[in-house]
Design a protein around this nucleic acid. Structure first.
Lengths: 224, 224
DNA sequence: GCCAGTGCTATAACACTGTTATTGAGTCGA
DNA sequence: TCGACTCAATAACAGTGTTATAGCACTGGC
Protein backbone atom coordinates (compact mmCIF):
# COMPACT_ATOMS: atom_id res chain seq x y z
CA UNK A 1 0.00 0.00 0.00
CA UNK A 2 1.73 3.21 -1.13
CA UNK A 3 -0.11 5.36 1.43
CA UNK A 4 -0.83 8.39 -0.72
CA UNK A 5 -2.05 10.42 2.25
CA UNK A 6 -0.09 13.59 3.01
CA UNK A 7 1.36 13.93 6.51
CA UNK A 8 -1.64 14.58 8.76
CA UNK A 9 0.41 16.29 11.46
CA UNK A 10 1.48 19.44 9.73
CA UNK A 11 2.50 22.21 12.10
CA UNK A 12 -0.41 24.44 11.17
CA UNK A 13 -2.78 21.58 11.83
CA UNK A 14 -1.37 21.17 15.32
CA UNK A 15 -1.56 24.91 15.76
CA UNK A 16 -5.22 24.79 14.78
CA UNK A 17 -5.81 22.12 17.40
CA UNK A 18 -4.25 24.19 20.15
CA UNK A 19 -6.18 27.28 19.14
CA UNK A 20 -9.42 25.33 19.13
CA UNK A 21 -8.55 23.92 22.52
CA UNK A 22 -7.83 27.37 23.88
CA UNK A 23 -11.22 28.59 22.71
CA UNK A 24 -12.89 25.48 24.12
CA UNK A 25 -11.14 25.97 27.43
CA UNK A 26 -12.49 29.49 27.63
CA UNK A 27 -16.01 28.27 26.97
CA UNK A 28 -15.66 25.52 29.57
CA UNK A 29 -14.46 28.12 32.03
CA UNK A 30 -17.53 30.24 31.31
CA UNK A 31 -20.29 27.64 31.06
CA UNK A 32 -18.89 24.60 32.80
CA UNK A 33 -17.90 21.29 31.25
CA UNK A 34 -21.48 20.43 30.33
CA UNK A 35 -22.17 23.81 28.80
CA UNK A 36 -19.66 23.45 25.98
CA UNK A 37 -21.43 23.44 22.62
CA UNK A 38 -19.74 22.54 19.37
CA UNK A 39 -21.82 25.09 17.53
CA UNK A 40 -20.96 27.85 19.96
CA UNK A 41 -17.30 26.89 19.79
CA UNK A 42 -17.37 26.96 16.01
CA UNK A 43 -19.17 30.28 16.07
CA UNK A 44 -16.63 31.78 18.47
CA UNK A 45 -13.89 30.43 16.27
CA UNK A 46 -15.45 31.68 13.07
CA UNK A 47 -15.75 28.32 11.41
CA UNK A 48 -18.13 25.43 11.08
CA UNK A 49 -18.56 22.45 13.35
CA UNK A 50 -17.02 20.18 10.73
CA UNK A 51 -13.56 21.50 11.55
CA UNK A 52 -13.95 20.05 15.03
CA UNK A 53 -14.86 16.71 13.53
CA UNK A 54 -11.83 16.58 11.28
CA UNK A 55 -9.51 17.75 14.06
CA UNK A 56 -10.89 15.80 17.02
CA UNK A 57 -13.32 13.31 15.54
CA UNK A 58 -16.27 14.62 17.53
CA UNK A 59 -17.17 15.96 20.93
CA UNK A 60 -15.73 13.08 22.95
CA UNK A 61 -12.44 13.53 21.13
CA UNK A 62 -12.47 17.24 21.90
CA UNK A 63 -13.23 16.49 25.53
CA UNK A 64 -10.40 13.99 25.75
CA UNK A 65 -8.04 16.58 24.31
CA UNK A 66 -9.28 19.13 26.85
CA UNK A 67 -8.79 16.48 29.48
CA UNK A 68 -5.15 16.13 28.48
CA UNK A 69 -4.77 19.91 28.51
CA UNK A 70 -6.10 19.96 32.05
CA UNK A 71 -3.58 17.44 33.27
CA UNK A 72 -0.79 19.29 31.52
CA UNK A 73 -1.88 22.41 33.40
CA UNK A 74 -2.02 20.50 36.68
CA UNK A 75 1.44 19.12 35.99
CA UNK A 76 2.74 22.63 35.44
CA UNK A 77 1.34 23.67 38.81
CA UNK A 78 3.05 20.69 40.42
CA UNK A 79 6.34 21.53 38.74
CA UNK A 80 6.14 25.11 39.95
CA UNK A 81 6.07 23.76 43.50
CA UNK A 82 9.05 21.46 43.11
CA UNK A 83 11.73 21.66 45.81
CA UNK A 84 13.63 18.40 45.73
CA UNK A 85 16.17 19.70 48.20
CA UNK A 86 13.48 20.59 50.78
CA UNK A 87 10.93 17.76 50.85
CA UNK A 88 8.61 19.35 53.38
CA UNK A 89 8.49 22.60 51.45
CA UNK A 90 7.93 20.60 48.30
CA UNK A 91 4.97 18.78 49.77
CA UNK A 92 3.35 21.82 51.37
CA UNK A 93 3.62 23.89 48.23
CA UNK A 94 2.42 21.09 46.00
CA UNK A 95 -0.70 20.64 48.12
CA UNK A 96 -1.31 24.38 48.01
CA UNK A 97 -0.73 24.37 44.26
CA UNK A 98 -3.31 21.63 43.81
CA UNK A 99 -6.00 23.75 45.38
CA UNK A 100 -4.89 26.79 43.44
CA UNK A 101 -5.16 24.85 40.20
CA UNK A 102 -8.65 23.66 41.05
CA UNK A 103 -9.90 27.20 41.54
CA UNK A 104 -7.92 28.76 38.72
CA UNK A 105 -9.37 26.18 36.32
CA UNK A 106 -12.60 25.00 37.90
CA UNK A 107 -14.15 24.05 34.57
CA UNK A 108 -11.23 21.83 33.64
CA UNK A 109 -11.12 20.40 37.14
CA UNK A 110 -14.74 19.38 37.01
CA UNK A 111 -14.20 17.87 33.58
CA UNK A 112 -11.21 15.88 34.79
CA UNK A 113 -12.76 14.61 38.01
CA UNK A 114 -16.47 14.72 37.30
CA UNK A 115 -16.59 11.01 36.70
CA UNK A 116 -17.62 11.05 33.05
CA UNK A 117 -15.73 7.93 32.16
CA UNK A 118 -16.03 8.32 28.42
CA UNK A 119 -13.64 11.26 28.56
CA UNK A 120 -10.87 9.27 30.20
CA UNK A 121 -8.59 7.62 27.64
CA UNK A 122 -9.01 3.90 27.94
CA UNK A 123 -5.57 2.71 26.96
CA UNK A 124 -4.11 2.38 30.41
CA UNK A 125 -1.05 0.49 31.38
CA UNK A 126 0.43 1.35 34.71
CA UNK A 127 3.27 0.06 36.78
CA UNK A 128 1.85 1.68 39.87
CA UNK A 129 -0.11 -0.35 42.31
CA UNK A 130 -2.62 2.02 43.82
CA UNK A 131 -2.93 4.51 41.01
CA UNK A 132 -4.15 3.66 37.58
CA UNK A 133 -2.70 4.86 34.35
CA UNK A 134 -3.32 8.59 34.42
CA UNK A 135 -0.30 8.73 36.67
CA UNK A 136 2.03 6.77 34.50
CA UNK A 137 2.98 8.33 31.23
CA UNK A 138 0.07 10.42 30.07
CA UNK A 139 -0.36 12.58 33.14
CA UNK A 140 2.82 12.92 35.16
CA UNK A 141 1.18 15.23 37.67
CA UNK A 142 0.48 12.41 40.08
CA UNK A 143 3.95 11.00 39.77
CA UNK A 144 5.13 14.36 41.10
CA UNK A 145 2.86 13.91 44.10
CA UNK A 146 4.28 10.47 44.72
CA UNK A 147 7.79 11.87 44.52
CA UNK A 148 6.98 14.64 46.95
CA UNK A 149 5.33 12.32 49.47
CA UNK A 150 8.15 9.81 49.11
CA UNK A 151 10.78 12.49 49.56
CA UNK A 152 9.06 13.86 52.63
CA UNK A 153 8.72 10.39 54.09
CA UNK A 154 12.34 9.49 53.37
CA UNK A 155 13.60 12.71 54.89
CA UNK A 156 12.03 11.96 58.26
CA UNK A 157 12.99 8.31 58.49
CA UNK A 158 16.13 6.33 58.79
CA UNK A 159 15.23 3.50 56.44
CA UNK A 160 13.93 4.33 52.96
CA UNK A 161 10.17 3.91 52.81
CA UNK A 162 8.51 1.09 50.96
CA UNK A 163 7.37 2.25 47.51
CA UNK A 164 4.00 0.60 47.98
CA UNK A 165 3.50 2.48 51.23
CA UNK A 166 4.48 5.71 49.52
CA UNK A 167 1.96 5.12 46.75
CA UNK A 168 -0.83 4.33 49.16
CA UNK A 169 -0.04 7.36 51.28
CA UNK A 170 0.16 9.56 48.20
CA UNK A 171 -3.25 8.33 47.15
CA UNK A 172 -4.57 9.19 50.60
CA UNK A 173 -3.10 12.66 50.26
CA UNK A 174 -4.62 13.02 46.83
CA UNK A 175 -7.94 11.90 48.22
CA UNK A 176 -7.78 14.46 51.00
CA UNK A 177 -6.96 17.25 48.58
CA UNK A 178 -9.54 16.24 46.02
CA UNK A 179 -12.20 15.75 48.66
CA UNK A 180 -11.85 19.14 50.26
CA UNK A 181 -11.54 20.89 46.92
CA UNK A 182 -14.41 18.93 45.43
CA UNK A 183 -16.76 19.67 48.31
CA UNK A 184 -15.82 23.32 48.07
CA UNK A 185 -16.43 23.43 44.34
CA UNK A 186 -19.75 21.64 44.77
CA UNK A 187 -20.82 24.34 47.20
CA UNK A 188 -20.79 22.47 50.49
CA UNK A 189 -18.05 24.40 52.19
CA UNK A 190 -18.21 27.76 53.84
CA UNK A 191 -16.00 29.75 51.48
CA UNK A 192 -14.66 31.89 54.33
CA UNK A 193 -13.02 29.09 56.23
CA UNK A 194 -12.23 26.76 53.37
CA UNK A 195 -8.59 27.76 52.93
CA UNK A 196 -8.04 27.52 56.66
CA UNK A 197 -9.41 23.99 56.77
CA UNK A 198 -7.29 23.05 53.78
CA UNK A 199 -4.20 24.33 55.58
CA UNK A 200 -5.31 22.28 58.56
CA UNK A 201 -5.34 19.22 56.36
CA UNK A 202 -1.81 20.04 55.23
CA UNK A 203 -0.71 20.24 58.88
CA UNK A 204 -2.52 16.99 59.57
CA UNK A 205 -0.91 15.08 56.74
CA UNK A 206 2.60 16.48 56.93
CA UNK A 207 2.92 15.70 60.62
CA UNK A 208 1.68 12.22 59.84
CA UNK A 209 4.57 11.94 57.38
CA UNK A 210 6.92 12.62 60.26
CA UNK A 211 7.46 16.35 59.87
CA UNK A 212 7.71 18.60 62.88
CA UNK A 213 4.64 20.74 63.51
CA UNK A 214 6.69 23.91 63.85
CA UNK A 215 8.44 23.22 60.55
CA UNK A 216 5.11 22.72 58.80
CA UNK A 217 3.89 25.98 60.27
CA UNK A 218 6.98 27.76 59.03
CA UNK A 219 6.54 26.32 55.55
CA UNK A 220 2.90 27.33 55.51
CA UNK A 221 3.81 30.86 56.48
CA UNK A 222 6.62 31.04 53.95
CA UNK A 223 4.55 29.70 51.07
CA UNK A 224 3.43 32.29 48.52
CA UNK B 1 -57.70 37.24 46.46
CA UNK B 2 -59.81 34.23 47.38
CA UNK B 3 -57.25 31.73 46.12
CA UNK B 4 -59.54 29.35 44.27
CA UNK B 5 -56.80 26.80 43.78
CA UNK B 6 -57.48 23.34 45.17
CA UNK B 7 -54.99 21.91 47.64
CA UNK B 8 -51.96 21.11 45.53
CA UNK B 9 -50.63 18.49 47.92
CA UNK B 10 -53.18 15.74 47.59
CA UNK B 11 -51.89 12.32 48.59
CA UNK B 12 -52.10 10.88 45.09
CA UNK B 13 -50.18 13.83 43.77
CA UNK B 14 -47.42 13.18 46.25
CA UNK B 15 -47.55 9.53 45.32
CA UNK B 16 -47.14 10.47 41.68
CA UNK B 17 -44.09 12.52 42.57
CA UNK B 18 -42.44 9.64 44.37
CA UNK B 19 -43.20 7.23 41.55
CA UNK B 20 -41.76 9.65 39.04
CA UNK B 21 -38.70 10.07 41.23
CA UNK B 22 -38.25 6.32 41.48
CA UNK B 23 -38.34 6.00 37.71
CA UNK B 24 -35.96 8.94 37.35
CA UNK B 25 -33.61 7.39 39.88
CA UNK B 26 -33.52 4.20 37.88
CA UNK B 27 -32.67 6.11 34.71
CA UNK B 28 -29.95 8.07 36.50
CA UNK B 29 -28.53 4.81 37.75
CA UNK B 30 -28.45 3.47 34.19
CA UNK B 31 -27.28 6.48 32.20
CA UNK B 32 -25.67 8.75 34.75
CA UNK B 33 -26.93 12.11 35.95
CA UNK B 34 -26.35 13.75 32.56
CA UNK B 35 -28.09 10.99 30.67
CA UNK B 36 -31.50 11.59 32.16
CA UNK B 37 -33.96 12.67 29.51
CA UNK B 38 -37.41 14.02 30.26
CA UNK B 39 -38.78 12.34 27.17
CA UNK B 40 -37.31 8.98 28.08
CA UNK B 41 -38.60 9.34 31.62
CA UNK B 42 -42.08 10.17 30.37
CA UNK B 43 -41.92 7.27 27.94
CA UNK B 44 -40.88 4.84 30.64
CA UNK B 45 -43.65 6.19 32.81
CA UNK B 46 -46.26 6.01 30.06
CA UNK B 47 -47.12 9.68 30.10
CA UNK B 48 -46.10 12.93 28.50
CA UNK B 49 -43.36 15.30 29.51
CA UNK B 50 -45.96 17.81 30.65
CA UNK B 51 -46.67 15.79 33.77
CA UNK B 52 -43.08 16.41 34.83
CA UNK B 53 -43.56 20.11 34.32
CA UNK B 54 -46.69 20.27 36.45
CA UNK B 55 -45.14 18.10 39.16
CA UNK B 56 -41.61 19.50 39.27
CA UNK B 57 -41.69 22.64 37.16
CA UNK B 58 -39.06 21.41 34.75
CA UNK B 59 -35.82 19.49 34.65
CA UNK B 60 -33.98 21.54 37.31
CA UNK B 61 -36.92 20.97 39.66
CA UNK B 62 -36.82 17.26 39.00
CA UNK B 63 -33.07 17.24 39.60
CA UNK B 64 -33.46 19.12 42.87
CA UNK B 65 -36.05 16.58 44.00
CA UNK B 66 -33.68 13.76 43.05
CA UNK B 67 -31.00 15.62 44.95
CA UNK B 68 -33.15 15.57 48.07
CA UNK B 69 -33.87 11.87 47.54
CA UNK B 70 -30.16 11.23 47.41
CA UNK B 71 -29.52 12.95 50.70
CA UNK B 72 -32.40 11.10 52.31
CA UNK B 73 -30.80 7.86 51.15
CA UNK B 74 -27.42 8.94 52.49
CA UNK B 75 -29.05 9.86 55.77
CA UNK B 76 -30.58 6.40 55.99
CA UNK B 77 -27.16 4.86 55.49
CA UNK B 78 -25.79 7.06 58.25
CA UNK B 79 -28.63 6.11 60.58
CA UNK B 80 -28.03 2.42 59.95
CA UNK B 81 -24.51 2.90 61.29
CA UNK B 82 -25.55 4.72 64.45
CA UNK B 83 -24.04 3.43 67.71
CA UNK B 84 -24.25 6.26 70.19
CA UNK B 85 -23.06 4.04 73.00
CA UNK B 86 -19.89 3.00 71.10
CA UNK B 87 -18.47 6.11 69.44
CA UNK B 88 -15.57 4.39 67.72
CA UNK B 89 -17.84 1.74 66.24
CA UNK B 90 -20.21 4.50 65.23
CA UNK B 91 -17.52 6.39 63.38
CA UNK B 92 -15.99 3.38 61.69
CA UNK B 93 -19.31 2.08 60.46
CA UNK B 94 -20.47 5.48 59.32
CA UNK B 95 -17.37 5.92 57.22
CA UNK B 96 -17.86 2.49 55.72
CA UNK B 97 -21.52 3.25 55.11
CA UNK B 98 -20.57 6.42 53.24
CA UNK B 99 -18.53 4.46 50.75
CA UNK B 100 -21.20 1.83 50.46
CA UNK B 101 -23.78 4.48 49.66
CA UNK B 102 -21.57 6.00 46.99
CA UNK B 103 -21.27 2.70 45.15
CA UNK B 104 -24.82 1.54 45.74
CA UNK B 105 -26.08 4.82 44.24
CA UNK B 106 -23.31 6.11 42.04
CA UNK B 107 -25.68 8.05 39.81
CA UNK B 108 -27.19 9.92 42.73
CA UNK B 109 -23.78 10.46 44.25
CA UNK B 110 -22.44 12.06 41.11
CA UNK B 111 -25.56 14.21 40.92
CA UNK B 112 -25.15 15.35 44.51
CA UNK B 113 -21.44 16.08 44.37
CA UNK B 114 -20.81 16.75 40.71
CA UNK B 115 -20.72 20.47 41.27
CA UNK B 116 -23.72 21.44 39.19
CA UNK B 117 -24.71 24.35 41.37
CA UNK B 118 -28.11 24.86 39.83
CA UNK B 119 -29.28 21.60 41.35
CA UNK B 120 -28.46 22.68 44.88
CA UNK B 121 -31.34 24.52 46.52
CA UNK B 122 -30.32 28.08 47.13
CA UNK B 123 -32.29 28.84 50.28
CA UNK B 124 -29.60 28.02 52.79
CA UNK B 125 -29.47 29.10 56.36
CA UNK B 126 -27.04 27.27 58.56
CA UNK B 127 -25.91 27.55 62.12
CA UNK B 128 -22.79 25.56 61.39
CA UNK B 129 -19.53 27.30 60.82
CA UNK B 130 -17.61 25.10 58.45
CA UNK B 131 -20.48 23.39 56.70
CA UNK B 132 -23.09 25.22 54.71
CA UNK B 133 -26.77 24.58 54.86
CA UNK B 134 -27.10 21.09 53.38
CA UNK B 135 -26.12 19.92 56.83
CA UNK B 136 -28.66 21.88 58.75
CA UNK B 137 -32.27 20.96 58.23
CA UNK B 138 -32.61 19.81 54.67
CA UNK B 139 -29.97 17.10 54.73
CA UNK B 140 -29.27 15.78 58.22
CA UNK B 141 -26.76 13.24 56.97
CA UNK B 142 -23.83 15.49 57.75
CA UNK B 143 -25.12 16.33 61.17
CA UNK B 144 -24.85 12.61 61.88
CA UNK B 145 -21.21 12.72 60.81
CA UNK B 146 -20.58 15.64 63.12
CA UNK B 147 -22.23 13.76 65.96
CA UNK B 148 -20.14 10.67 65.32
CA UNK B 149 -16.88 12.58 65.14
CA UNK B 150 -17.79 14.60 68.20
CA UNK B 151 -18.75 11.49 70.14
CA UNK B 152 -15.53 9.76 69.20
CA UNK B 153 -13.48 12.78 70.13
CA UNK B 154 -15.29 13.23 73.46
CA UNK B 155 -14.86 9.59 74.33
CA UNK B 156 -11.08 9.76 74.11
CA UNK B 157 -10.60 13.05 75.89
CA UNK B 158 -11.10 14.39 79.34
CA UNK B 159 -12.48 17.79 78.45
CA UNK B 160 -15.36 18.01 75.99
CA UNK B 161 -14.11 19.09 72.57
CA UNK B 162 -14.77 22.50 71.16
CA UNK B 163 -17.75 22.38 68.76
CA UNK B 164 -15.86 24.39 66.18
CA UNK B 165 -13.00 21.91 66.30
CA UNK B 166 -15.46 19.05 65.92
CA UNK B 167 -17.01 20.69 62.87
CA UNK B 168 -13.67 21.33 61.24
CA UNK B 169 -12.50 17.81 61.91
CA UNK B 170 -15.76 16.38 60.63
CA UNK B 171 -15.33 18.37 57.45
CA UNK B 172 -11.83 16.96 57.11
CA UNK B 173 -13.23 13.45 57.54
CA UNK B 174 -15.93 14.19 54.99
CA UNK B 175 -13.30 15.49 52.62
CA UNK B 176 -11.21 12.35 53.03
CA UNK B 177 -14.19 10.09 52.39
CA UNK B 178 -15.46 12.09 49.45
CA UNK B 179 -12.01 12.40 47.93
CA UNK B 180 -11.22 8.70 47.95
CA UNK B 181 -14.70 7.77 46.79
CA UNK B 182 -14.74 10.47 44.15
CA UNK B 183 -11.38 9.46 42.71
CA UNK B 184 -12.51 5.88 42.64
CA UNK B 185 -15.77 6.75 40.89
CA UNK B 186 -13.91 8.90 38.39
CA UNK B 187 -11.74 5.91 37.53
CA UNK B 188 -8.39 6.93 39.02
CA UNK B 189 -8.11 4.21 41.62
CA UNK B 190 -7.10 0.64 41.19
CA UNK B 191 -10.38 -1.09 42.03
CA UNK B 192 -8.60 -4.01 43.64
CA UNK B 193 -6.94 -2.03 46.42
CA UNK B 194 -9.48 0.73 46.79
CA UNK B 195 -11.33 -0.71 49.76
CA UNK B 196 -8.05 -1.47 51.48
CA UNK B 197 -6.88 2.13 51.09
CA UNK B 198 -10.23 3.39 52.33
CA UNK B 199 -9.87 1.23 55.44
CA UNK B 200 -6.39 2.67 55.82
CA UNK B 201 -7.90 6.13 55.82
CA UNK B 202 -10.31 5.03 58.54
CA UNK B 203 -7.38 3.81 60.64
CA UNK B 204 -5.56 7.03 59.94
CA UNK B 205 -8.42 9.27 60.99
CA UNK B 206 -9.70 7.31 63.96
CA UNK B 207 -6.30 7.14 65.58
CA UNK B 208 -6.02 10.87 65.00
CA UNK B 209 -9.24 11.22 66.97
CA UNK B 210 -7.54 9.51 69.88
CA UNK B 211 -8.67 5.94 69.40
CA UNK B 212 -6.36 3.04 70.02
CA UNK B 213 -5.05 1.35 66.89
CA UNK B 214 -5.99 -2.09 68.12
CA UNK B 215 -9.52 -0.96 68.88
CA UNK B 216 -9.88 0.49 65.40
CA UNK B 217 -8.65 -2.79 63.95
CA UNK B 218 -11.16 -4.71 66.01
CA UNK B 219 -14.00 -2.46 64.86
CA UNK B 220 -12.91 -2.80 61.25
CA UNK B 221 -12.93 -6.56 61.55
CA UNK B 222 -16.28 -6.60 63.32
CA UNK B 223 -17.98 -4.30 60.84
CA UNK B 224 -20.34 -5.98 58.42
C1' DG C 1 -1.97 23.77 -18.78
C1' DC C 2 -4.87 20.42 -17.62
C1' DC C 3 -6.86 16.76 -15.15
C1' DA C 4 -7.77 13.22 -11.69
C1' DG C 5 -7.42 12.69 -6.89
C1' DT C 6 -7.43 13.98 -2.28
C1' DG C 7 -8.30 16.47 2.14
C1' DC C 8 -11.08 19.71 4.25
C1' DT C 9 -15.02 22.67 5.13
C1' DA C 10 -19.66 24.67 4.62
C1' DT C 11 -24.48 23.55 3.99
C1' DA C 12 -28.34 20.99 4.94
C1' DA C 13 -30.62 17.37 7.06
C1' DC C 14 -31.67 13.90 10.93
C1' DA C 15 -32.59 12.49 15.53
C1' DC C 16 -32.36 14.04 19.68
C1' DT C 17 -32.89 17.38 23.85
C1' DG C 18 -35.64 20.97 27.15
C1' DT C 19 -39.24 24.14 26.95
C1' DT C 20 -43.60 26.38 25.84
C1' DA C 21 -48.16 27.58 23.56
C1' DT C 22 -52.31 25.49 22.46
C1' DT C 23 -55.99 22.53 22.91
C1' DG C 24 -59.02 19.37 24.78
C1' DA C 25 -60.55 16.29 28.48
C1' DG C 26 -61.72 15.89 33.09
C1' DT C 27 -63.21 17.62 37.77
C1' DC C 28 -64.90 20.39 41.28
C1' DG C 29 -68.04 23.81 43.27
C1' DA C 30 -72.10 26.88 42.72
C1' DT D 1 -76.20 22.17 34.60
C1' DC D 2 -72.96 25.17 33.87
C1' DG D 3 -68.83 27.83 34.32
C1' DA D 4 -64.20 27.80 36.06
C1' DC D 5 -60.35 25.58 36.78
C1' DT D 6 -56.53 22.03 36.65
C1' DC D 7 -53.94 19.10 34.18
C1' DA D 8 -52.00 16.33 30.49
C1' DA D 9 -51.40 15.44 25.48
C1' DT D 10 -50.10 17.45 21.05
C1' DA D 11 -47.45 20.22 18.36
C1' DA D 12 -44.14 23.57 17.69
C1' DC D 13 -39.61 26.13 18.67
C1' DA D 14 -34.84 26.61 19.61
C1' DG D 15 -31.05 24.19 20.72
C1' DT D 16 -27.79 20.06 20.71
C1' DG D 17 -24.41 16.23 18.43
C1' DT D 18 -23.87 13.88 14.32
C1' DT D 19 -23.84 12.68 9.44
C1' DA D 20 -24.50 12.87 4.28
C1' DT D 21 -23.84 15.80 0.43
C1' DA D 22 -21.60 18.90 -2.21
C1' DG D 23 -18.15 22.31 -3.30
C1' DC D 24 -13.72 24.37 -2.59
C1' DA D 25 -8.62 24.32 -2.63
C1' DC D 26 -4.68 22.10 -3.24
C1' DT D 27 -1.50 18.57 -4.62
C1' DG D 28 0.98 15.06 -8.15
C1' DG D 29 1.50 13.37 -12.65
C1' DC D 30 1.13 13.94 -17.41
Amino acid sequence: MPEPAPPPDEPDREDLRTRFLAAAEKLVRQHGPDGLSLRELARAFGSSTMAIYTLFGGKPGLMQALYAVGFARLHAYALSAEHRDAPLRWMVRQMLAYRRFAFDHTGLYRLMFGGEKRFIPTDRHSRFASLTAPVDNAYPAFAALIDAVGGCLAHHRETPPDPAEVQDLAFLVWGQMHGLVGLEIAGYADPAGALGRYRNAIRFICTHCGADAADVEAELNAAP
